[in-house]
Design a protein around this nucleic acid. Structure first.
Lengths: 235, 235
DNA sequence: CGAGGCGTTGAATGGCCTCAACGATGGTGG
DNA sequence: CCACCATCGTTGAGGCCATTCAACGCCTCG
């Protein structure tokens, strides 16, 4: 089911953090330039195709990852084998924080849209955060950000009718974009995010299309009717 | 609706952290005794009755709280005014972490069972964590703990039939107790935790009682038939 | 070209919600 | 001290919405 792509195959090269294009938004924002010289462990960059797994639940957590572009899902499995997607990881997000506490990864992290990541060895982050309060503070921020997301998923994406949930998910996908355009996920994934079945997700999306709340601009690229979707989301 | 009990009314005295009965489990575990001398801001203790609010969403976050005994709910409000309970805070848990980042509280924290808390001024925790790596690490741990809870609520308490959800909630309530005894929440609160209506929560609990999965040992005190509840929780 | 995955749609079922009524409980005020 | 009222848990009836199971077309890929 999940394609096997080892990180080594996907390797793009060593990251140059000093000149990183998204440096102001990432974990290392606020670090003085000098410290990058002291990093001996490599910070590698990878590009991962759809379906690839960045890590699996239970794996030894030895690296955290900053996402440069793309989207990943964090999946948690239930006792009965069904899966629930508990969060999405997008540009400038960090995932795998739990390994800073010496824990194994808690989720499967699977690529939904082609993803570029930087891989940060735990040791590097630990060492840097020892004597860089700004990094330390940034770590707390990331944890809080994840927690905010988790709370929002509960209140927005797991509450209300299926139409409301789908509408809220769509709005979330474009909310920090300038355009109102987005790609849709597989219906099965939508279901796993919203706690509804694949069929219900499909029916709802199909109905939204018929009502022109979703208009396909390019292949698998949709423009949203934001005002009307907001109306549906609210009630 | 929420009883007004100011913290001043509920004041029990100043905490003596050095001799705290749950000191090994709390945030300050691992701190050398000497540092407690340096705390000038008071760490106060309070006992809050059912229905009292420890803080409200949007309030200036100036204190975090360690719960000694009792249970609090963290409530998030939706656009339409309905509420969703996103987490429970219990003995040895810390809540209000967001104020370490200078943010206002994100939830209402309301007492479900009579609660003793210690109130820690942000400044105290900030100062101590500067030069106490163990406290710093413990803070990260607390954040991660909250995140784990949030994920579990999504996968366990917002997934599956109402019977499954109620069973899983009951099992959670006793899981770190030695006994299989617990108090039940108001049906409305159960509904808000599980994403179901008050009536459905009531019907499910009533049915569990009829099936002797729940047996009242004392007033509002129930013994759980754990094996059979586990069977229901799984499928 | 065939196979398999995915999105869509239909029909039927059932579970949850809505609206409503009623008893028990506990607190308040006369 | 008791009558009253508000709140809470419970239960019923009816309807709706999501699920289940199934079929079908489209597309990609081998």
């Amino acid at each position: 089911m999940v394609k096997l792509v080892t990180l080594k195959e996907a390797w793009d090269g060593k990251a140059d953090c000093k000149t990183c294009a998204i440096r102001e938004s990432v974990l290392f924002a606020g670090l003085p330039e000098g410290v990058f010289e002291k990093i001996h462990d490599p910070i590698d960059q990878y590009t991962l195709p759809v379906g690839a797994a960045l890590y699996h639940a239970g794996d030894d957590g030895e690296r955290l990852y900053t996402v440069r572009t793309g989207i990943l899902k964090l999946v948690q499995y239930l006792q009965d084998g069904s899966q629930r997607i508990v969060r999405l990881i997008r540009s400038t997000d960090v995932t795998g924080l739990e390994c800073l506490l010496g824990e194994n990864y808690h989720h499967d992290a699977v690529v939904l849209q082609e993803t570029e990541v930087c891989s940060l060895p735990v040791k590097v982050v630990e060492n840097l955060s020892m004597d860089n309060p700004s990094l330390h503070r940034e770590l707390l921020n990331r944890w809080q950000r994840a927690l905010n997301e988790a709370d929002a998923w509960l209140t927005e994406l797991s509450t209300g009718s299926s139409k409301q949930r789908v509408a809220r998910l769509l709005l979330r996908l474009v909310q920090d974009n300038q355009s109102s355009e987005c790609q849709l996920f597989a219906r099965e994934d939508m279901g796993a995010m919203l706690g509804i079945t694949t069929e219900t997700a499909s029916r709802t999306i199909a109905e939204f299309k018929r009502q022109s709340l979703l208009v396909e601009s390019q292949t698998n690229n949709f423009l949203l009717d934001i005002p009307n979707l907001q109306r549906i989301a609210k009630d």
